[in-house]
Design a protein around this nucleic acid. Sequence first.
DNA 1: GTCTTGACCGCTC
DNA 2: AGAGCGGCCAAGA
Length: 151
Amino acid sequence: MARSDEAAAFFHGVYTAIQQIPHGKVTTYGHIAALIGTRNPPPPLSPLLSHLTSCRSPVPAQRPRQVGVCLKHLPADPSAPFNSQNVPWQRVINAKGEISPRSQPEGSTNQADALRAEGVEVVRGAMGEYHVDFAEYGWFPEELPETDASP
DNA sequence: GTCTTGACCGCTC
DNA sequence: AGAGCGGCCAAGA
Protein backbone atom coordinates (compact mmCIF):
# COMPACT_ATOMS: atom_id res chain seq x y z
CA MET A 1 0.00 0.00 0.00
CA ALA A 2 1.49 3.28 -1.01
CA ARG A 3 1.38 6.10 1.43
CA SER A 4 -0.49 8.11 -1.14
CA ASP A 5 -3.40 5.72 -0.64
CA GLU A 6 -3.18 6.27 3.10
CA ALA A 7 -3.23 9.99 2.52
CA ALA A 8 -6.17 9.66 0.15
CA ALA A 9 -8.07 7.63 2.74
CA PHE A 10 -7.25 10.19 5.39
CA PHE A 11 -8.34 13.03 3.14
CA HIS A 12 -11.55 11.20 2.32
CA GLY A 13 -12.25 10.60 5.99
CA VAL A 14 -11.58 14.20 6.87
CA TYR A 15 -13.81 15.59 4.17
CA THR A 16 -16.55 13.09 4.92
CA ALA A 17 -16.43 13.89 8.62
CA ILE A 18 -16.60 17.61 7.93
CA GLN A 19 -19.60 17.07 5.71
CA GLN A 20 -21.36 15.51 8.70
CA ILE A 21 -21.22 18.78 10.62
CA PRO A 22 -24.78 20.11 10.84
CA HIS A 23 -25.62 23.52 9.48
CA GLY A 24 -25.02 26.22 12.05
CA LYS A 25 -22.63 24.08 14.10
CA VAL A 26 -18.85 24.05 14.43
CA THR A 27 -16.22 21.57 15.55
CA THR A 28 -12.46 21.38 15.94
CA TYR A 29 -9.65 19.95 13.86
CA GLY A 30 -8.83 17.63 16.72
CA HIS A 31 -12.34 16.26 16.85
CA ILE A 32 -12.33 15.56 13.14
CA ALA A 33 -9.14 13.59 13.62
CA ALA A 34 -10.66 11.91 16.66
CA LEU A 35 -13.71 10.87 14.66
CA ILE A 36 -11.52 9.22 12.08
CA GLY A 37 -9.43 7.56 14.78
CA THR A 38 -12.32 6.50 17.01
CA ARG A 39 -14.24 5.10 14.12
CA ASN A 40 -13.88 1.35 13.91
CA PRO A 41 -11.56 0.05 11.20
CA PRO A 42 -13.73 0.60 8.13
CA PRO A 43 -13.10 -1.21 4.86
CA PRO A 44 -11.99 1.87 2.91
CA LEU A 45 -9.27 2.70 5.42
CA SER A 46 -6.21 0.51 5.11
CA PRO A 47 -4.91 -1.44 8.14
CA LEU A 48 -1.88 0.80 8.48
CA LEU A 49 -3.99 3.75 9.54
CA SER A 50 -5.82 1.58 12.04
CA HIS A 51 -2.51 0.35 13.35
CA LEU A 52 -1.32 3.92 13.83
CA THR A 53 -4.48 4.75 15.70
CA SER A 54 -4.34 1.68 17.93
CA CYS A 55 -0.58 1.75 18.42
CA ARG A 56 -0.65 4.64 20.84
CA SER A 57 -3.60 6.17 22.63
CA PRO A 58 -7.06 5.32 21.31
CA VAL A 59 -6.94 8.61 19.50
CA PRO A 60 -3.75 10.04 18.03
CA ALA A 61 -3.58 13.69 19.00
CA GLN A 62 -1.20 14.70 16.26
CA ARG A 63 -3.63 14.19 13.40
CA PRO A 64 -5.36 17.58 13.78
CA ARG A 65 -2.45 19.36 12.20
CA GLN A 66 -2.76 17.18 9.14
CA VAL A 67 -6.48 17.89 9.08
CA GLY A 68 -5.66 21.53 8.54
CA VAL A 69 -3.34 20.53 5.72
CA CYS A 70 -6.18 18.57 4.16
CA LEU A 71 -8.38 21.63 4.17
CA LYS A 72 -5.53 23.64 2.74
CA HIS A 73 -5.40 21.24 -0.18
CA LEU A 74 -9.17 21.17 -0.48
CA PRO A 75 -9.73 21.84 -4.19
CA ALA A 76 -11.99 24.71 -5.18
CA ASP A 77 -12.88 22.95 -8.40
CA PRO A 78 -16.64 22.17 -8.28
CA SER A 79 -16.09 19.12 -10.48
CA ALA A 80 -13.89 17.50 -7.82
CA PRO A 81 -15.60 14.93 -5.54
CA PHE A 82 -14.69 17.09 -2.55
CA ASN A 83 -14.46 20.82 -3.06
CA SER A 84 -14.79 23.99 -1.02
CA GLN A 85 -18.45 24.12 -1.98
CA ASN A 86 -19.39 20.61 -0.86
CA VAL A 87 -17.19 20.56 2.23
CA PRO A 88 -18.13 23.11 4.92
CA TRP A 89 -14.53 23.78 5.87
CA GLN A 90 -15.70 26.98 7.52
CA ARG A 91 -17.29 24.96 10.34
CA VAL A 92 -13.90 23.65 11.44
CA ILE A 93 -11.98 25.76 13.96
CA ASN A 94 -9.21 25.14 16.47
CA ALA A 95 -9.63 23.70 19.96
CA LYS A 96 -9.48 27.15 21.53
CA GLY A 97 -12.78 27.99 19.88
CA GLU A 98 -11.08 30.51 17.66
CA ILE A 99 -10.37 30.78 13.98
CA SER A 100 -6.67 30.30 13.39
CA PRO A 101 -5.18 33.35 11.69
CA ARG A 102 -3.47 31.21 9.03
CA SER A 103 -1.40 32.73 6.23
CA GLN A 104 -4.10 34.85 4.66
CA PRO A 105 -5.95 37.02 7.19
CA GLU A 106 -8.75 37.42 4.69
CA GLY A 107 -9.37 33.70 4.88
CA SER A 108 -10.21 33.87 8.57
CA THR A 109 -12.42 36.86 7.91
CA ASN A 110 -14.19 35.02 5.14
CA GLN A 111 -14.61 32.02 7.42
CA ALA A 112 -16.09 34.18 10.16
CA ASP A 113 -18.43 35.80 7.68
CA ALA A 114 -19.53 32.41 6.35
CA LEU A 115 -20.23 31.18 9.88
CA ARG A 116 -22.28 34.28 10.66
CA ALA A 117 -24.22 33.68 7.46
CA GLU A 118 -25.20 30.31 8.93
CA GLY A 119 -26.40 31.91 12.12
CA VAL A 120 -23.31 31.20 14.18
CA GLU A 121 -22.48 34.00 16.56
CA VAL A 122 -18.84 34.88 15.95
CA VAL A 123 -17.37 37.19 18.56
CA ARG A 124 -14.31 39.19 17.66
CA GLY A 125 -11.66 39.12 20.37
CA ALA A 126 -9.61 42.04 21.59
CA MET A 127 -6.69 40.93 19.42
CA GLY A 128 -8.84 40.74 16.32
CA GLU A 129 -9.38 37.02 16.63
CA TYR A 130 -12.72 35.42 15.98
CA HIS A 131 -14.19 33.31 18.76
CA VAL A 132 -17.13 30.91 18.72
CA ASP A 133 -18.91 29.58 21.79
CA PHE A 134 -18.68 25.79 21.75
CA ALA A 135 -21.30 25.52 24.47
CA GLU A 136 -23.88 26.82 22.04
CA TYR A 137 -22.59 25.99 18.58
CA GLY A 138 -20.19 23.13 19.27
CA TRP A 139 -20.81 19.78 17.60
CA PHE A 140 -18.92 16.92 19.21
CA PRO A 141 -20.50 13.52 18.48
CA GLU A 142 -18.74 10.44 19.80
CA GLU A 143 -18.69 8.86 16.39
CA LEU A 144 -19.65 9.63 12.85
CA PRO A 145 -23.32 9.04 12.11
CA GLU A 146 -24.08 6.28 9.64
CA THR A 147 -25.30 8.43 6.81
CA ASP A 148 -24.29 5.87 4.24
CA ALA A 149 -26.92 3.12 4.41
CA SER A 150 -24.93 0.53 2.48
CA PRO A 151 -23.13 -1.75 4.92
C1' DG B 1 16.77 12.88 -3.47
C1' DT B 2 16.59 15.93 1.46
C1' DC B 3 14.96 19.84 4.32
C1' DT B 4 11.54 23.16 6.06
C1' DT B 5 7.02 24.54 7.06
C1' DG B 6 2.16 24.17 8.40
C1' DA B 7 -5.64 26.33 8.71
C1' DC B 8 -2.96 21.96 15.60
C1' DC B 9 -3.13 19.74 20.30
C1' DG B 10 -1.62 18.43 24.86
C1' DC B 11 1.44 18.53 28.37
C1' DT B 12 5.05 20.99 31.04
C1' DC B 13 7.59 24.95 33.22
C1' DA C 1 -3.07 31.23 35.46
C1' DG C 2 -0.22 32.20 31.38
C1' DA C 3 3.44 31.05 28.11
C1' DG C 4 6.54 27.67 25.84
C1' DC C 5 7.89 23.45 23.78
C1' DG C 6 7.66 18.90 21.36
C1' DG C 7 5.43 15.69 18.32
C1' DC C 8 3.06 13.59 14.10
C1' DC C 9 2.08 13.48 8.72
C1' DA C 10 2.25 15.34 4.32
C1' DA C 11 3.07 18.81 0.76
C1' DG C 12 6.20 22.25 -1.29
C1' DA C 13 10.87 24.07 -2.53
